[in-house]
Design a protein around this nucleic acid. Structure first.
Lengths: 407, 407
DNA sequence: CGATTAAATATAGTGCTTGGATAAACTCCC
DNA sequence: GGGAGTTTATCCAAGCACTATATTTAATCG
């Protein structure tokens, strides 16, 4: 007698499954008719219409009036009622909590960004409280810009330059650097009632590529975030490889790789080797870099000079290519990826570097060698990944959320 | 009208789900009563009994007579009917198709090995046809030893020393070595009507550890198969990391790791460095190895001598420890595992080596360093992994199989 | 304006489940 | 040895969510 009571039919399991598959269809398509959903889900018209009714009641969908223009087009028979996902049924927040600045976006359920705000962080007084306060302020501004009430937010994902475990907390690391970068974001936002994920920045870059970038439809790839330091986000067999403490893709292992020796990033090394070359007087007479003071040289200049045929800059790029090939060989050797995507601020300027790297890599790994491509997100990789992770969570757990629109 | 017809209630989806969860319970437990299954599944008595009835009809379960002894024990009320999984409802075959020998086992649905046969392979005339023929013969013998008719076999998994893609085919590699090791096993066994998986041997070692060994309940670990050559099977976040062509954990990348330089295995190096030490006359006066001819030294002898305090052997072990620590640092750095399991024939003798390695590793990785343990499977790691993979497939797709017992 | 077409709606029927009510099988105790 | 007490098995009515089909509705077109 003490067994828990259930309502009939296994707690409405079947009903829930069907509702979910209709909602999933709605998410994958724009405006649609019952007949289209029937074909996709294999359900009957009655069922589809009834599930749509429930979804409208719950606030996830709406029925749309048929626009007059569309009516005329090739329409025989009784016109179908049209349904669509309410992209304003809720919102998700993405946060890129970088070392030097916080960037937040607000997106609707279709993943369209409708608000954004950035704020620099003063490293001098970088403490937990300030970091949380700045982030809160950033979120408030982005929500205001989007015209979204905080109560309509369903989920948030935060990218931090630190490994994180499943709960979203970071291990101490060296000098407590990681906990400083991740001062309890998880508990902080959960307290606001938002579903919260805190994830390593390189992992988010990988998720961005998987959802919207060069990783779409690719079984296995790595996103190599490569500005000042290298960090890899790894997707193998379609799933993000996190590791037990979220430390997969932490590139400290490069210390042990011959010809690499550190996790320094492409941006850092291009600049630093470029300046070294300048100071050593190894730049050719016609070099565009020669006129500048050494300290003014940055990474894009070096790549641009190499493109112009500057032999000094080309030497730097060749050295970078040799090093990057070793990094890629190690990643591919361990994980057998189809593609390695170079992400981060330097992505737009590494085209030539990647071509040179690919040539070297060819001879280093078992064929087929992974394809090398540059990310198209530039500096936005992490924030795009954050908001798509938050959105992905809403999509796959939609019916667990109670919407404000349902009232 | 052209839409496909279905029978009512979404093709009996709910029924199937419930049947599956009862079968899953049966698999996880020994003899059980309806009440126990009710508690576990949350279903009603009527439903559980009806699902059990169907499973009995399908041949997966049987009702067992209550043994007289058990009846007396603390039994109030009407005694329950007892059900159990028919462990003889079908069988799975595991194959370890190694370079030098083929080993096959036959196991029942509870994973109990009930037949085994091994056969050496002559490398001189190692061709596709012979390899398949020897394997077939081995299987026939193992089935005969188990007293199992081939028609009762449901699934087979084959371990090969080569990467394999999802279909079970291997890329060419160097000198066509991989296709020689994997001469179309997949198509060969599928033609016999058995569900077939062909998988890399190190991956299978990892699956063995996950199912029955040191990987049970561990979120992330690597199994380092380490006899003549190193190969790693990687499980991260509970899932096997295969890579696009099954090449994850292929250790060619060690060529690029400082202080390692090759994928040579622990067994190979212990033997070879032990002989070098002998030939260099660097063994101490009391050394047990000193009396032997150099060519008689093998890996276990070197480890045994080190345990006895032989300074020459200890130097070899220390050198191995330094090298192994680098290997582990690279694996952990890339994947953030909780544990690294040393598997293969050398596993029983590496206890001291692992202690020394752990000390070095401590300083090389972000804490917590992965735990180093020796596999308890010895030379059986691959075959255990193969049969548990085949069994796992049967378990999770049980209702797709039609049993001979159901007649 | 009726014929045609396709979607919406209404209604009946089916499959699978729950939730009692009732019967069965056992122990314990007087 | 015959109730009392317990737990399980069986049976059957009720309900849910789906399918299947007949009927109605809303458009187009000749």
């Amino acid at each position: 007698m003490s067994r828990p009571l259930q309502n009939a039919s296994s707690s409405g399991l079947l009903r829930r499954i069907n509702t979910e598959s209709v909602l999933e269809y709605a998410w994958a398509h724009d405006v649609f008719t019952a007949s289209e959903a029937m074909d996709a889900t294999g359900l009957t018209r009655s069922t589809v219409i009834s599930r749509c009714g429930e979804l409208i009641e719950l606030g996830w969908m709406r029925e749309v009036e048929r626009a007059a223009e569309a009516a005329a087009a090739t329409a025989k028979g009784r016109p179908a009622r049209l349904y669509e996902l309410r992209s304003d049924a809720g919102y998700v927040i993405g946060v890129d909590a970088g070392q030097h600045r916080v960037l937040t976006t607000v997106s609707d359920l279709r993943g369209v960004e409708i608000g954004r705000h950035a704020h620099p962080l003063d490293l001098e007084h970088d403490n937990a409280q300030d970091r949380l306060a700045v982030t809160d302020a950033c979120i408030a501004q982005a929500l205001a810009a989007a015209g979204v009430d905080p109560s309509r937010v369903l989920a948030i994902a935060v990218g931090v330059p630190a490994p994180t475990d499943i709960e979203g907390t970071s291990p101490p690391g060296q000098d407590e650097f990681w906990p400083r970068m991740n001062p309890g974001f998880a508990a902080h936002f959960r307290a606001r009632g938002w579903h919260t994920t805190v994830e390593n920045d390189a992992n988010l870059a990988a998720l961005a590529e998987r959802a919207l970038g060069a990783g779409r439809g690719v079984r296995s790839f790595a996103a190599l975030l490569s500005g000042e330091r290298l960090g890899a986000g790894i997707v193998v067999d379609g799933a993000l490889v996190r590791g037990s403490h979220g430390g997969a893709g932490e590139m400290r292992l490069l210390e042990y790789v011959a010809g690499v020796g550190s996790a320094n990033g492409i941006g850092f090394l291009a600049r630093s080797w470029g300046r070294d070359t300048h100071e050593a007087g190894a730049l050719p007479p016609g070099s565009t870099l020669r006129g500048l003071p050494s300290s003014a040289i940055d990474a894009p200049m070096v790549f641009a000079a190499a493109d112009d045929g500057d032999v000094g800059a080309i030497a730097v790029v060749d050295r970078l290519a040799d090093r990057l090939a070793r990094v890629c060989a190690v990643i591919d050797g361990m994980l057998d990826v189809d593609r390695i995507i170079i992400a981060g601020g330097v992505a737009p300027v590494v085209g030539d570097l990647l071509r040179r790297t690919a040539n070297i890599l060819e001879g280093m790994v078992h064929p087929p060698a992974p394809e090398l491509v540059a990310s198209s997100f530039g500096a936005d990789a992490v924030i795009v990944g954050a908001s798509s992770l938050a959105l992905e969570h809403v999509r796959s757990n939609a019916l667990h959320f109670a919407l404000r629109t349902a009232e």
